[in-house]
């Protein structure tokens, strides 16, 4: 049996898979974030950037398949873990009090995860399975200037940020990295990363809503 298979049969192995896929997804988010930031440079730059991406052709395709696989691995493993964890305590406590270890991020991982799934579907429908002839800038502006959708994006992206506020630290712990010297940096780094991701992404729907000149 291959080592991935045996990894998958163990709790620690599954967590390492969550961590690895989470890390790669985070890296993807980072590139996505950098790409999206081009929008702040204006309509033309953004459109050009999108053109450039599309022109990569087959490479994009490979990348998309990879990303999808990553998501599926992360999601399926996450669901398995969640269900197993529920089963591990069939009778609940009458009084639930946190000991002080949990954070908002950590306690909501599965829920923010579900929000992200819904978000991704909507997001793909909005931007992927759509009329590719419309320039990206128009697409973004057209969609995100509609308050309900913009709000949905903002809430979802807050969920992403919350997910990462725990996840970006947790993944290191899962693969075995925890060192007194670097723990402070890691914890703060994870928080900073989640705030950065949240802020930059959310800026787009916010600007689309309130700015008269954004992407015009």
């Amino acid at each position: 049996m291959g080592s991935i298979g045996s990894l998958y049969r163990s709790s620690v192995g599954k967590k390492s898979i969550m961590a690895a896929s989470g890390l790669l997804l985070s890296l993807f988010l980072l590139t996505h974030l950098l790409g999206n930031s081009v929008s702040f440079l204006g309509r033309d730059a953004f459109n050009a950037y999108a053109e450039k991406l599309h022109s990569l052709g087959g490479l994009v395709y490979v990348f998309e398949i990879g990303l999808l696989t990553l998501f599926l691995i992360h999601i399926i493993t996450g669901i398995i873990l969640y269900v197993e964890n529920l089963q591990a305590r069939p009778a609940r406590y009458s009084v639930n009090t946190a000991e002080g270890g949990r954070s908002w991020g950590s306690r909501t991982m599965p829920y923010t995860g579900v929000i992200i799934i819904v978000f991704i579907i909507v997001h793909l429908l909005n931007f992927h399975f759509t009329d590719k002839s419309v320039p990206v800038a128009d697409l973004v502006r057209g969609l995100l200037s509609r308050p309900p959708l913009a709000l949905f994006y903002i809430v979802s992206l807050l969920a992403v940020a919350l997910h990462l506020s725990h996840g970006a630290w947790s993944l290191f712990q899962s693969i075995g990295f925890n060192h007194d010297k670097y723990n402070g940096v890691l914890l703060k780094g994870a928080l900073a990363f989640s705030i950065l991701v949240g802020t930059v992404f959310i800026l787009i729907p916010v600007l689309a809503l309130v700015s008269r000149s954004f992407l015009l």
């Binding site: 599954k14 967590k15 873990l81 964890n85 591990a88 305590r89 270890g101 950590s106 630290w169």
Partner: peptide, 18 residues
């Protein structure tokens, strides 16, 4: 540990605090 039906670690840090 897995066979005995304990749950998985989600790095919630509650154990350490308790």
């Amino acid at each position: 540990m897995d066979e005995l039906g304990f749950g998985n670690c989600s790095n919630e840090r509650e154990c350490e605090a308790a």
